[in-house]
Design a protein around this nucleic acid. Structure first.
Length: 657
RNA sequence: GGCGAGAUAGCUCAGUUGGCUAGAGCAUACGGUUCAUACCCGUAGUGUCGAGGGUUCAAAUCCCCCUCUCGCUACCA
């Protein structure tokens, strides 16, 4: 009976805050695949969960005045609530703070250390004691400190590293031998060309800069790097035991058949994760699919704009299944999808309300009108019936084919093609004409039977994607949903059954303008709310935390000379995407300074600005152009830059101290 | 700068190994119908298939070059 096991995972969601619709999309996509496979006869295990360690969470908890654990408990359960609301049928919701997970991660770390794959090394390579600075190999000048020219030595700041290079060749081989391993294939090239072929750097797999992580049990100053922690959830969640056989469940389900992840974390899943597994001697997952993103159409989503769309907003407006339909349908295979309120309404009206909802409604209405709701197959067939029946019984095969390639949107379209065919069938058979002629009663009954049966088949196929709706349709038709196998036979609907008297509207038509206005009001309210909070607590917008650097002495600071500079000319650096070359007057001197800010400032608008310049920086050549200093900028979390300018008018050359 | 993807109807996109008047959905217009949630069915479209050149009996499809967009990556003092 069973077609075998199928283990599918989503990425685990980071518990730093409420997930937006993009995260939810992944859960719904995985869910529809899991439900499809389950119904298709596979023994499915679907795992999702939350990733709960790291510095960001430590800081967020501190801000909120709670312990990290209290913080993640709250966020994790809210994420789980959203997944539940969306009807995701996960078999396991793992949290990286679960004790069995933490224990296994510690064991894994120890094992890798004992077998020499993880070694204790120095972070950032070279250290110059007088300057108290770390330098990477590439920063060194003739093997010496670029600052003072003195000898450097390996750093004292210790950290654990993983020997990535040891397994690189094996991984390259594997990827080449299994073209389906990384999906979509375009991602495969990126990984190969940018990381694997040039040679992998060893990965630092421990941190000492914060506490909120899994401690390295034999060296408790260190916590395990979040990715090593997070990735292993895929095995710990189903019972992996380091150094042992693992549970029966583990032996049954591993390796995973599909890791569904966002395209932004492909690198971790296609390089680091397989290498960790190789080191552990475990088989590699069969496929990693980096899905595209769901973007908001009108400008980027941001909390400060107050226009972030959350799953529960959409559910309030449209209902769970409509949202599931939308995210699944609107997401193409390898391009990013767009979400706007207008598009939501359009899909809602044309596909859900008109094509599907109205079809069910009109069919039931006619059944009630002509036969008091009793559906009987009188077997008065006509040639037109054949085409409908054929479409109905063949849909499963078409859906299946699309699902094999993970083309979920296309699979759903196939089902809707059946519903459209039903509408056409009504037009062809003209039941209202048959209804006027007593001799045609039996023909009319047959037509309605065919319709009800076709709709039942469609609903059964729709179940993995829109489970609630499928159930509602079946209930209105007073039947139960069929297995996939059964949808390939026409005529399973029990003749003589009675459909509901009063069909409930499945999807109400919506007015785009009203919805947009309502959404705008919601956002305005939200902005007002965050605005109040800002005033009340003095926390403005988003705060950003960056990695802390070691304390420096005043002498260190005094070495740097900052002055106000006036930009008197500026042009683009031809060969570069990001560089602008400015002529900056600093006192009586004119310096040429190259800066990576082309994406934020045009050459024209640079001219005339008074900016903060680090003037005594050693000159360097960038993209073939000499740069004799540095323009200072502030940078936000998205990488937007703002030049630092004096708050009052100051002459070029004024010292900044 | 390196690697890669893409540019097709107003919009979102399909077009397998080059082959007959280039397609689908939505939106638009017109016609039909009335069971139904002003719904459904049909018809009609418009396209220099990004620009230019080449191979071929034949190119949206292959080759060259150009422009633009996007992704990853490097640089971003």
């Amino acid at each position: 009976m069973s077609k075998g096991k199928y283990y599918i995972t989503t990425a685990i969601t980071y518990t730093s805050g409420k997930p937006h619709i993009g995260n939810t999309y992944e859960a719904v996509l995985a869910d529809s695949i899991a439900r499809f496979k389950r119904k298709d006869g596979y023994d499915v295990f679907f795992q999702t969960g939350t990733d709960e360690h790291g510095q960001k969470i430590e800081i967020k908890a501190q801000e909120a005045g709670v312990t990290p654990k209290e913080y993640v408990d709250k966020v994790s359960s809210s994420i789980r609530d959203i997944w539940d609301m969306m009807g995701t049928s996960y078999d396991k919701f793992i949290r990286t703070t679960d004790d069995y997970h933490e224990k296994q991660v510690q064991k894994i770390f120890k094992k890798l250390y004992d077998q020499g794959d993880i070694y204790k090394g120095a972070y950032e390579g070279m250290y110059c004691t007088p300057c108290e600075s770390f330098w990477t190999e590439s920063q060194l000048a003739d093997g010496k400190c670029p600052d003072c020219g003195r000898e450097v030595r390996p750093a004292k700041e210790e950290a654990y590293f993983f020997k990535m290079s040891k397994y690189a060749d094996k991984l390259i081989e594997h990827i080449n031998a299994h073209p389906e391993f990384i999906q979509p294939v375009s991602r495969k090239n990126e990984m190969m060309n940018n990381f694997l072929l040039p040679g992998l750097q060893d990965l630092c797999v421990s941190r000492t800069s914060f506490q909120w992580g899994i401690p390295v049990d034999f060296d408790d100053k260190h916590v395990v790097y979040v990715w090593l922690d997070a990735l292993t959830n895929y095995i710990t969640g189903i019972g992996y035991e380091c150094g042992g056989e693992g549970t029966e469940q583990y032996r049954k389900y591993w390796p995973a058949d599909l890791h569904l992840i966002g395209k932004d974390i492909i690198r971790f899943h296609t390089i680091y994760w397989p290498i960790f597994l190789m080191a552990l001697g475990e088989p590699l997952p069969k496929q990693i699919f980096g899905h595209p993103w769901l973007l908001q159409g009108d400008g980027k989503m941001s909390k400060s704009k107050g226009n972030v769309i959350y799953a529960d907003d959409l559910v309030d407006f449209f209902g769970v299944d409509a949202v599931r339909y939308f995210v699944l349908h609107e997401m193409p295979f390898d391009n990013d999808g767009v979400i706007t309120w207008e598009l939501m309404v359009e899909r809602m009206n044309s596909d859900l309300a008109n094509t599907l909802g109205n079809l069910v409604n009109r069919t039931i209405s006619m059944s009630n009108k002509y036969f008091d709701g009793v559906i009987c197959d009188k077997n008065v067939a006509e040639p037109v019936d054949e085409e409908l029946k054929e479409t109905a019984v063949q849909t499963y095969g078409k859906v299946c084919k699309k699902m094999e390639e993970l083309r979920v949107a296309d699979a759903i379209s196939e089902i809707f093609a059946l519903f459209k065919r039903c509408n056409k069938y009504i037009d062809e058979t003209e039941p209202w004409v048959l209804g006027k002629n007593e001799d045609k009663k039996d023909r009319l009954a047959t037509v309605l039977y065919n319709l009800v049966e076709s709709i039942s088949i469609g609903a059964s196929l729709l179940e993995p994607y829109m489970p609630q709706t499928a159930g509602k349709i079946a209930a209105q038709l007073n039947t139960t949903l069929s297995s996939f196998e059964e949808t390939t036979q026409f005529g399973r609907y029990p003749s003589g059954s009675r459909v509901t008297e009063k069909p409930e509207i499945l999807f109400a038509r919506l007015d785009a303008k009203e919805v947009t206005e309502k959404a705008e009001a919601l956002f305005a309210a939200r902005r007002a709310e965050t605005g109040e909070k800002e005033e009340g607590t003095e926390t403005l917008e988003e705060i950003i935390d960056i990695e802390k650097k070691p304390e420096i002495s005043y002498d260190d600071f005094a070495k740097m000379q900052f002055q106000v500079g006036e930009i008197i000319a500026c042009e683009e650096v031809k060969k570069s995407k990001k560089l602008l070359c400015s002529k900056v007057r600093v006192g009586s001197e004119i310096k040429q300074i190259v800066s990576g800010i082309k994406q934020h400032y045009s050459a024209e608008e640079m001219v005339g600005k008074k900016v903060m310049v680090l003037v005594n920086l050693k000159p360097a050549t960038l993209a073939g152009v000499v740069s004799e200093g540095m323009l200072l900028c502030a940078e936000d979390a998205e990488g937007n830059l703002a030049l630092m300018t004096p708050e009052k008018t100051m002459p070029a050359g004024a010292e900044i101290c």
